[in-house]
């Protein structure tokens, strides 16, 4: 990606409207620093997924402008743009007819890397995500557990060493225990990789644990940008609703039982 100022991603007054007139994103201003991790938090239907699909160029804004590495998105070749961004979609979408190795090698193959370099890179990534290459490289997605599939999805997104990583609730479909484990691992990985990361989640707990800036979305609008401390102090009703969902007293299981009434 080309040189520019400090912003990796800038969304300037971006709106996105469906052909039927429904507004999914309303005048959104959002900037992500190079090397920064930004959490995009919001309820279902708040426009989180839409906003990262806009960044990836899967959708074109109805109004406003998106700059990637300082360059207007309209000046990017969409294929080049997407290959320079790792994207982990919510459902992962591994190719079921390809082995783990071939799945991870997707973008390096498209970019016509030499075979031996691709193989080395796949081995490196499998080790990075804690999966033994000898055991897993030749497996098909159906032969993996849900958590392993998520790991492979992350490895596939990282394969061509993109500067930007977009993650759409990547651990949302997993059981809470596995999700928490993977998130912890991913946070460690992310801080080592030093990439620009946009991480979409509806889970305030994981947002706070990441220690990153939080952009809160509601009904397609930006409610505000917060540090984790600011977030917990804010009096905004949408913020309070999220904080209430944390259920502070519930960390102790006895409290949780005390809070719950008979069904």
């Amino acid at each position: 990606m080309t040189e520019s100022g400090g912003w990796a991603i800038e969304m300037l007054g971006v709106s996105y409207r469906l052909p039927n007139g429904r507004v999914l994103i309303d005048n959104l201003d959002l900037r992500v620093n190079r090397g920064e991790m930004l959490i995009v938090l919001g309820r279902s239907g708040s426009g989180k997924t839409t906003s990262i699909r806009l960044i990836n160029g899967l959708l074109t804004p109805s109004a406003g402008e998106i700059l990637i590495e300082g360059r207007p998105q309209s000046q990017w070749d969409p294929i080049r743009l997407r290959r320079g961004m790792g994207y982990v979609i919510q459902e992962i979408g591994l190719f079921p007819h390809w082995t783990v190795e071939r799945n991870i090698a997707l973008v390096p193959h498209l970019e016509k890397w030499p075979e031996d370099r691709v193989r080395d890179r796949v081995q490196e990534l499998l080790r990075l995500i804690g999966m033994d290459p000898a055991e897993f490289a030749g497996r098909f997605p159906r032969e993996l557990s849900g958590g392993q599939r998520q790991r492979v999805g992350v490895a596939r997104a990282l394969a061509a060493d993109p500067a930007i990583l977009l993650m759409d609730e990547p651990f949302g479909a997993l059981d809470p225990v596995t999700a928490a484990e993977l998130e912890t691992e991913f946070r460690a990985l992310a801080s080592r990789l030093g990439k620009t990361i946009v991480f979409v989640t509806h889970n305030l707990r994981s947002a706070l644990l990441s220690r990153a800036r939080i952009a809160l979305l509601a009904r397609g609008r930006l409610v505000g940008l917060f540090s984790p401390e600011e977030f917990l102090r804010s009096r905004d009703p949408e913020v309070r609703a999220f904080v209430a969902s944390l259920n502070p007293g519930a960390e102790n299981p006895q409290d949780l039982l005390a809070q719950g009434g008979p069904l």
């Binding site: 899967l58 294929i79 290959r83 994207y87 979609i89 459902e91 979408g93 591994l94």
Partner: peptide, 22 residues
């Protein structure tokens, strides 16, 4: 599977590559 197609597009496959490879 639409998720597979979304992934193909999001990773930067061209429509032709998506057709032939996926």
């Amino acid at each position: 599977d639409p998720a597979v197609l979304e992934a193909a597009r999001a990773m930067g496959m061209t429509p032709r590559q998506t057709l032939w490879q996926v």
